[in-house]
Every structure is written in C-alpha cells, then in structure tokens.
Simulated assay, not measured.
Amino acid sequence: MVVYKQDSNKLIPFVDDTIARWTTPTAMVDYESVAAGDKFGNVWIVRCPEKTSAEADEPGSEAHLISREYLNGAPNRLNLMAHFFAQDIPTSICKTALVVGGPDVLLWGGLQGTIGVLIPFVAREDADFFQTLEMHMRSEDPPLAGRDHLLYRGYYVPVKGVIDGDLCERYLLLPSGKKQMIAGELDRSVREIERKISLARTRSAF
C-alpha cells in the first residue's frame, strides 16, 4: 500500500506483503483490508495494521516512512487474515450484496467459469458450527481421488480463516446413517443442520 503526500508530490509505500504474489484481481474490503487472487488459484485477504495506517495518514510523516525502509521494501508488513486455494484462477473480485438487505459478500469469478462467494460470519456460534461440520465432513466424505482435503485447500499456503462451503453442502448428499451420526456429534437434528446450510446460502448469496 502507498500513501500520497501532497506537499512532496510523492507516492510512498508504507506497508507491503511478506510474500511476492502473482496477483490477478484485487478489491478493497474496507479502509485497511484488501481481497485478491493470483494466477495459481489462491484467494486471500490481507490487512494493514490499524496503527500503521493511522501513522501513514498523519501530515509530515513522509520523512519518517522513507527513513524506515526495510530490506528494500516498506517499513511495515501486511497481516494475512484469510487464505484459500480455490483451484480456478480468479479474474475478478468485488464487494457487493447479492440479496436485498443481506450482508456484503466478496463475489469472485474464475477463468474456467467458476463463480464463488466469500461470506462473512457475524456470529461466533455459526463459525464454530460450520468449522465442526467441515471437520466431520473431511473424514466422512473423502474425495474420489483420495487426496487430503486440508492439504488440497492449502496447496500453496496453509488454509487460514476460511471454511469450505462446498464441502459443508455435501452433507445434504450423505446417506441417512452418516447424517444421523454427524448430527449426534454436533448435538443437533439432521433437519436443523440441513436448514442452517440452506440459510447460509439463501441469506447471503443465491
């Protein structure tokens, strides 16, 4: 990220990433956060530390920023908030609301025609529920090729801060016995789990 200083008429880099990325699309999530993808099929979100952002906006901070260059780069580093291997190469990404009155989501499109959505969890309870469901689905619904799901989604960088909604939705396709077993582990009924999966999609996306 760079900041423009009107007095010196300069664009000064004040924070950069620890990894050199082959970025394809980018989109601002908020004032400090950016969502992006790369040519290897990764989607991620990085965030500038709030203190660093505030210091860069202060008038007269250009001398301080230039003098603190580190290893030929910016003096500060972005924090990786989320990382996910999507398999398709992202070509566009934007922040938008797909449902009237619904929350803002990150909608991205891929080179092979993939349309994906990153939906934020507002309640901690929902995040814990889907994280536990994802963990059970990894063991109860192994892929045909026999690959480990966690290794696959973290193909280049370990997956972080993202729950695989495609895997969670495969709960609807499981045999009745496996559905009952997972529902017992989650201390919920099968109908309740299916309803939460459907609501997660319809309330935020399509």
Rank of each mutant, 00 (worst) to 15 (best):
S198Y: 00
L151P: 13
S198K: 02
G161L: 12
I193E: 02
S176D: 14
S189L: 03
E192S: 07
V162N: 05
M181N: 09
E185Q: 14
V190Q: 12
E185W: 13
L150P: 01
R195V: 00
V157N: 07
L167D: 07
V190C: 11
Q180L: 15
L172I: 12
E194Y: 12
D166R: 14
G177S: 10
P158Q: 04
S189A: 04
G161N: 10
K179P: 14
I182L: 10
E194L: 15
V162Q: 05
I197Y: 03
G184N: 12
V159H: 06
E194H: 10
C168K: 02
L199P: 03
S176P: 02
K179C: 12
G184Q: 11
K178P: 07
R153L: 14
I193Y: 03
V162M: 09
L172C: 10
I197A: 03
G154D: 07
V162D: 02
P158Y: 00
L172A: 13
A183C: 08
L151Y: 14
G184R: 13
I182W: 00
G177P: 02
L199W: 02
V159I: 14
I197K: 01
D187Y: 15
I163T: 07
V190I: 12
L150V: 05
R195M: 00
L186Y: 13
R170G: 03
Y156V: 13
R188K: 13
I182R: 06
D187A: 14
L151H: 14
R153I: 14
S189F: 04
L167K: 09
L150C: 05
P175T: 09
D164C: 09
L150K: 04
K179I: 11
V159L: 15
K160Q: 00
L150E: 06
Y152H: 03
E185N: 13
A183V: 06
Y171E: 08
G154R: 04
D187N: 15
Y155N: 14
P158R: 02
K178Y: 10
L150M: 06
V157E: 02
G154A: 11
K178E: 11
E185Y: 15
G177Q: 09
R191V: 08
A200D: 03
M181Q: 08
L172N: 08
D164F: 09
R191H: 06
K196R: 13
K160L: 02
K178R: 15
L174W: 08
R188L: 05
L172E: 11
L167R: 11
L150Q: 09
S176K: 15
I197P: 01
L174R: 11
Y155V: 10
G184Y: 09
D166I: 07
M181G: 06
I193C: 03
G165K: 04
A183T: 04
L151S: 14
K196D: 02
Y155R: 15
E192M: 02
